[in-house]
Design a protein around this nucleic acid. Structure first.
Ligand SMILES: Nc1ccn([C@H]2C[C@H](O)[C@@H](COP(=O)(O)OP(=O)(O)OP(=O)(O)O)O2)c(=O)n1
Ligand SMILES: [Mg+2]
Length: 777
DNA sequence: ATCCTCCCCTAC
DNA sequence: TAAGGTAGGGGAGGAT
């Protein structure tokens, strides 16, 4: 969080246990009853035509298994499964804590907890045991990889959707899952009024919505919810609680080295924050997700921007992450002064302590060396229990996806609340935008599309004025390897003018632009900036639609009326100024009557500008727009278009010549109608464009660098991903209507030779996807 | 017709 | 080394 002072008064908490139970993810205590098996001894021989994996659900010692493939010897499979499940039965009840897939699957088997309606059905199910089915099928032929998907779906059984409480293992202690989430009070915004369903995707959102009074108690602290700060503050307390109390079950506690120490990781570090978290927790310390003044012992950082030093408060201590690794190696907490980056209050001194540290270090390193190396290796091992978090910690796509979802939750909550965020500028400024004279009687829509210019680069350049206007790209690669396969997340406009694009490989980008400067990611800053811009925009209006972490639409029709603003450009400039003042990042604004026009306008506004497609300009404007820029039309459809027409066309003007019938054959009816309107600029926003967006599904995928050679490795990752999905489901308080398990395997004939075979074996990706039950959120 | 499931495609 | 995640729209084809 950007400003620590918000949390400074968190101390002196009154403890109350009851309430905080509501705010943590329910732990699963029930014993696992499902197992994942592979058909073959290893996956080396899993070719597309064979069954690769089956998932068995075991309930009250009976096995439920549907086989729907002809060419599988189902009897033999069942026998083997039964055998294995017997082994599994011997396991102790509470020792199996990591079997998340099982828990996930098991939650299907226990929906009788959820409500009465199910009770009558249970009788039926006595006979007809299976309420979970297993389909195994093969994906259509693909050129490189073959995907085998296992779909777990609930048997429909009857009328409408059955409810599945996810992760409610212990029905006695817990409230049954609510059948439907309802709003207990009337929402005050008109946009929310039509949609009675609460969009509580995030758990935080749920708390937000629970009371009319906005004071919420969590983990012994009282929160009054008024703005994003409060919202985040609450989230933070909850996060810290989760992290430290639940301890995330990755490793057993190894030592108590860091007892009474707590750290906050500031910025992007090596090892990444989540790895540090595991190290700290494993060695008895506390990890704080956010810095809490007076409570957090140390800030961990890799470096400190000079600009940041001014904002450091008394007694804040910044040290290098080496303090952690070396303390573990030494078997005791070392003197922080040897790892000091910056300390406010007591500067200087402490350098000579090096002696001490070195001496004491040599005393007892031997034993702990094994601990260190084993735990360090474990973190680097793709098959370790923290693999997913480690992976996520470095994945930009994961970051922007989850951030976008967070922002949507935030907006949804604001809409429910119906209250603007407090403005960070005097309201007078808005009134001054009015030019006085004529009353603007036109009651028309006016849409702004706000998008930060090369988001990641802008963040990086805040403290690198020397690189302004230079060719810069954000990537993991440090440029030491010239043909790096690292992807460029974002590149500056100078780099774009050489042909570099977002998403390009570093290797290819360097061909276009040899003096490209590569800079690392700053994940935490993206989170902060993203939150800031949403806070800012939500202080203007709540007619806001989140698109991504750096991009949103706002409808300023009513705002312009309210403040009698005739020239939207003045308002846009005001917004841009506010964003720049607060985040030091440039934003561009596209203005149009509809979201389409606003969006197309943004391209012309960039970089760092405003562009307004007025109604008068519209026709002419559309003629020259690129077809590819129409939202929803990607490379595949462009290819299909050129293939079907027989020649390349690129502008919307050319596309306007085509009759809708022809487009329909190329794109299908829906897309064709959409594009037919879009290329003329006459597409209207749908009814619910400004309404709250309800999440319909939750998924976890990992598709990079997975190369397993043993079945056990597969199971481990599957379980871990299952656990992750389960966490997300409970967090978002959603109930799954169907859960899909995905894995991809490489086909046998794609291996070049039999020599390659054992090492290449099968690379595949895995993922879980849960579709929400209609009405379950 | 209308639903569901398994894709493919798109966007950031 | 690098970390190709995540959610939604929609079409084809089968079940109802
Ligand atoms: N293939 C991609 C595309 C985008 N992003 C990330 C980095 C971008 O900074 C951010 C926002 O994406 P935009 O499409 O808005 O692109 P930029 O903000 O970088 O540039 P601009 O909006 O100025 O065109 O998302 C990414 O990681 N990988
Ligand atoms: Mg952008």
């Amino acid at each position: 969080m950007r400003s620590p002072d918000v949390f400074a008064d968190d101390d002196g908490a009154v403890n109350s246990d009851d309430s905080f139970e509501n705010f943590t993810v329910t732990p699963i205590r029930r014993r696992s009853q499902a197992i994942v098996h592979s058909e073959n001894e290893s996956f080396d021989f899993a070719t597309g035509s064979e069954q690769a994996t089956v998932i068995e659900i075991q309930q009250h010692q009976e096995t439920v298994l549907f086989e729907e493939k002809e060419d599988v010897d189902s009897e033999e499979t069942i026998n083997r499964l039964l055998d294995s499940s017997l082994e599994e039965e011997l396991e102790d009840i509470d020792c199996e804590h990591n079997d998340a897939l099982s828990k996930l699957l098991q939650s299907f088997g226990h929906r009788e907890n959820s409500n009465e309606r199910q009770e009558e059905k249970e009788e039926q199910e006595q006979e007809n045991r299976p309420n979970v089915s297993l389909d195994i099928f093969e994906q259509a032929e693909d050129n490189a990889d073959e995907e085998i998907e296992i779909q777990l779906s609930e048997e429909p059984e009857d009328d409408e959707a059955t409810l599945l409480p996810v992760a409610l293992p212990d029905g006695n202690n817990l409230e049954p899952a609510p059948k439907r989430r309802r709003l207990d009070f009337a929402p005050s915004t008109s946009s929310a009024a039509d949609g009675p369903v609460v969009p509580a995707q995030s758990d935080v959102g749920e708390y937000w919505n629970q009371n009319n009074t906005k004071t919420i108690e969590i983990h012994g602290n009282n929160f009054e919810i008024n703005n994003f700060h409060d919202y985040m503050r609450m989230k933070i307390t909850k996060l810290n609680h989760q992290v430290n109390v639940e301890k995330s079950k990755p490793f057993e506690k190894i030592s108590e080295i860091f007892k009474n120490y707590s750290v906050y990781v500031n910025g992007y570090t090596e090892p990444p924050a989540l790895v540090i978290r595991d190290l700290i927790v494993a060695h008895g310390g506390e990890y704080h997700c956010y810095y809490m003044h007076g409570r957090t012992t140390y800030n961990i950082a890799s470096s400190l921007a000079t600009a940041k030093i001014a904002t450091i408060r008394e007694k804040e201590i910044f040290i290098k992450s080496d303090w952690i690794t070396e303390s573990i190696a030494a078997g005791k907490p070392l003197d922080y002064r040897d790892f000091l980056i910056y300390e406010k209050g007591a500067q200087e001194k402490g350098r000579m302590r090096e002696f001490f540290a070195n001496n004491s270090q040599s005393q007892n390193t031997e034993e702990d060396h094994s601990t260190l190396s084993s735990s360090q290796n474990a973190f680097l091992d793709a098959r370790n229990p923290n693999f997913i978090r480690d992976y996520y910690a470095r994945s930009r796509l994961h970051l922007i996806s989850t951030l976008a979802q967070d922002m949507k939750d935030f907006v949804a909550n604001l809409k429910l609340e119906g209250k603007l965020i407090e403005k960070c500028f005097p309201e007078e400024e808005l009134k001054q935008l009015s030019e006085g004279n004529i009353k603007n009687s036109r009651n028309e829509n006016m849409v702004f599309h706000v998008d930060l210019d090369c988001f990641f680069v802008s963040v990086a350049l805040r403290d690198r004025v020397d690189l302004k206007e230079k060719e810069v790209a954000i990537t993991h690669s440090k440029g030491t390897i010239s043909n790096s396969m690292s992807e460029i997340a974002s590149c500056s406009y100078a780099a774009r003018s050489c042909g570099v694009k977002n998403g390009m490989l570093v290797r290819d980008a360097l061909q276009h632009c040899p003096n490209l400067t590569l800079l690392p990611y700053q994940f935490d800053d993206y989170v902060n900036v993203s939150q800031q811009i949403y806070e800012i925009l939500a202080s203007y209006t709540l007619e806001l639609r989140a698109v991504s972490c750096d991009e949103m639409y706002i409808n300023v029709g009513t705002l312009c009326q309210q403040y009698d603003i005739q020239d939207p450009i003045l308002l846009a400039e005001h917004i841009r100024k506010t964003i720049r003042a607060k985040t030091r990042c440039p934003a561009s604004v596209g203005i149009g009557r509809t979201s389409l026009l606003a969006r197309l306008a943004t391209r012309h506004a960039k970089p760092d500008g405003v562009y307004w497609v007025t109604e008068e300009k519209r026709i002419e404007f559309m003629l020259e727009e690129k077809i590819k820029d129409l939202p929803g039309l990607g490379y595949q459809m462009m290819d299909r278009l050129t293939a079907c027409i027989g020649k390349e066309i690129s502008t919307c003007g050319q596309l306007q010549q085509k009759p809708e019938r022809e487009l329909s054959q190329i794109f299908g009816p829906k897309l064709a109608t959409k594009i037919f309107k879009q290329c003329r600029g006459v597409e209207e926003d749908s009814e619910d464009f400004w309404k709250t967006q309800l999440r319909k599904s939750v998924s976890c995928d990992i598709n990079y660098g997975i190369r397993f050679t043993k079945r056990e490795e597969l199971l481990q990752l599957m379980r871990a991903i299952g656990a992750e999905l389960e966490r997300k489901l409970t967090d978002s308080k959603m109930m799954a209507g169907a859960i899909t398990v995905k894995l991809m395997t490489k086909k046998l004939h794609h291996y070049k030779s039999m020599e390659d075979y054992p090492t290449l074996c099968c690379g595949y990706s895995t993922g879980f996807h849960a579709a929400s039950l209609p009405g379950s959120n």
